[in-house]
């Protein structure tokens, strides 16, 4: 469960005091979850790995600030990840031309095949493609709720929203996702 584990709290305290090993443990514990969250929002394994690293780097730098705010570590980490994903999308928007150029070139095929070996299932790719058509908030709710198994209470903390609002976002996201999948099947 994503709720704060007692050892998380202890590790965070040690990390705030500059204990790199404690931070390393936090990194190991949350690495896959943060990677998945980012992957499902950007759809590229290599980029997701790079951004995951950035999330933890940012977290390390901002740890003293985290303690001041007193927010649950997991929520805080997802918030950093969310910001980094937004940055990534902004950068991508600016680089549309170069991305298009890249897509028209041959090396893309190699990248695709490498990607295929990393993604364990075609379903993950299908889900990522469908998710990319949802709004930012809807993506977050679907990933946190169904991929990561968060409760609405946990999601509410990450999104700074009320539980009822998260439930409503979930309903709308599922409806939209269902339409997307239905249309793609036709």
């Amino acid at each position: 469960m994503p709720d704060i584990k007692p050892d998380d709290t202890t590790l965070v305290k040690l990390a705030v005091d500059g204990d790199v090993d404690a931070f390393g443990d936090l990194y190991s514990i949350h690495l896959d979850a943060i990677f998945r969250y980012i992957y499902y929002r950007i759809g590229d394994v290599q980029d997701a790995e790079d951004l995951t690293e950035q999330v933890f780097l940012k977290a390390w730098e901002a740890l003293p600030g985290y303690q001041q705010k007193g927010k649950p570590f997991t929520s805080w980490l997802y918030r950093i990840a969310h910001n980094i994903v937004i940055d990534h999308h902004r950068r991508r928007k600016k680089d549309v031309f170069s991305v298009d150029q890249l897509n028209s070139e041959e090396p893309e095929k190699d990248q695709k095949s490498a990607l295929q070996t990393v993604i364990e299932s075609e379903e993950a790719k299908v889900l990522e493609t469908a998710l990319s058509q949802l709004s930012d908030e809807q993506q977050q709710v679907i990933i946190l709720r169904f991929v990561e198994g968060f409760s609405h209470k946990d999601i509410a903390q990450v999104l700074n929203k009320k539980e009822g609002a998260c439930r409503m976002i979930q309903y709308r996201a599922l409806t939209k996702l269902q339409n997307i999948i239905y249309l793609s099947d036709e």
Binding site: L31, R36, V45, E49, L57, I119, E120, A124, L127, V147
Partner: peptide
């Protein structure tokens, strides 16, 4: 959706990650 495979970062990334993170820090 809950049955979607729990994809993870690649093994090579995870193997090198702790050392790389430490260097970055």
């Amino acid at each position: 959706l809950q049955e979607v495979p729990q994809i993870t970062a690649s093994d090579s990334f995870k193997a090198a990650a702790p050392a790389r993170m430490q260097n970055l820090i």
